[in-house]
Design a protein around this nucleic acid. Structure first.
Length: 301
DNA sequence: TTAAATTCCTGTAAGC
DNA sequence: TGCTTACAGGAATTTA
């Protein structure tokens, strides 16, 4: 499922292809995927808007449009955002389609028309179909939002998010202080988007294993030194996963529909019962914060 | 106020 | 083989 590294991969892939493009038309085969505003307003409002930036915040994909509008995409568990040629067959569970203006590297519109009139359009300029950004989500846990940044925050449509764990400004002591005030399991805090943005079940388990910390430990009981280790492990887990283009467990695919590479390198997630790579003892699975949680009873304390 | 439980949703895999 | 059932989980919402 898409967590910080997967969303970061998609955003980095999409950015050069979307920035500067204009959304010609939006269609919503499944309108309720849009949570704000009303679907008709959403469709009307994005049409004709230029995409000025593509960013990530936590697990959210943010697209800055004209007129201070912000198009927000959350992939939930099975959401996929793909860039395809407009004539590509529409896959099942496609809930939103954004048609983009043509490729600026080949003459389009008026320029193409002029060339054709003069009978001099080079054959090396194929009639490139316009492209579409498509949102597909079989389990429909994802959502789309539109509004000004200010209005989205004010209406509480966008949750308040904690610091970005891979931001160099995120200091070990900041993690220590936020853990200190939480009387719940370490796992629950790592999954809390208001505490740290972007961490989900995969990288919570991976980073606690790297830090040699039991997921069911009380967060408030962690020493400064342990918090420091967790801080480093979190960054390592996330940055390594970004380098490997994310983990394709379940249905995750990048913007081109390709698999990531990190799933083959996971230390504990999805490996319950298999031997720990460090000590060989079978990894244990428990349920914490409503999530399956895998760890090593010997290596993690 | 905070933490835990419940809910949404469908593809997949296990079990009969 | 074919059906039923349990399970996966992000986060909003509800309950404790």
């Amino acid at each position: 499922m898409p967590e910080l590294p997967e969303v970061e991969t998609i955003v980095a892939d999409l950015r050069p292809h979307l920035v500067g493009r204009t959304i010609v038309r939006a269609e919503l085969p499944f309108p309720t995927i849009v949570r704000h505003p009303e679907p008709e307003v959403f469709v009307d409002s994005v049409a004709g808007m230029r995409i000025n930036a593509v960013r990530r915040r936590g697990k959210f994909i943010l697209m800055d449009l004209d007129h201070d509008l912000l198009l927000v995409v959350h992939l939930g568990m099975t959401g996929q955002l793909r860039l395809v040629d407009a004539d590509a067959p529409i896959e099942k569970h496609t809930h939103a389609i954004f048609t983009l203006d043509g490729d600026s590297s080949s003459p389009s519109g008026g320029a193409r028309h002029l060339l054709r009139q003069r009978g001099s359009e080079p054959s090396s300029f194929p009639a490139r179909p316009s492209r579409q950004l498509r949102y597909r989500d079989p389990r429909r846990f994802g959502r789309l939002l539109l509004g000004t940044q200010e209005s989205l925050l004010a209406s509480k449509k966008m949750p308040r998010l904690g610091p970005e764990p891979i931001d160099p400004a995120f200091a070990p002591d900041e993690l220590y202080r936020s853990l200190r005030k939480r009387h719940t399991s370490l796992k629950a805090v790592l999954l809390d988007q208001g505490a740290i943005a972007g961490v989900g079940n995969i990288y919570a388990d991976e980073s606690m294993h790297r830090a040699r910390l039991r997921p069911d430990r009380m967060a408030a009981g962690l020493s400064r030194k342990s918090a420091q280790r967790l801080h480093e492990s979190l960054r390592d887990s996330l940055l390594t996963a970004i380098r490997n283009r994310g983990s394709s467990v379940d249905t995750y695919r990048d913007a081109w529909g390709e698999l990531g590479g990190q799933q083959e390198k996971l230390l504990v997630y999805g490996r319950a019962g298999e031997p720990c790579f460090t000590c060989g003892r079978p990894l244990k699975m428990i349920r914490l914060a409503g999530r399956s949680t895998v760890f090593c009873t010997k290596c993690q304390h």
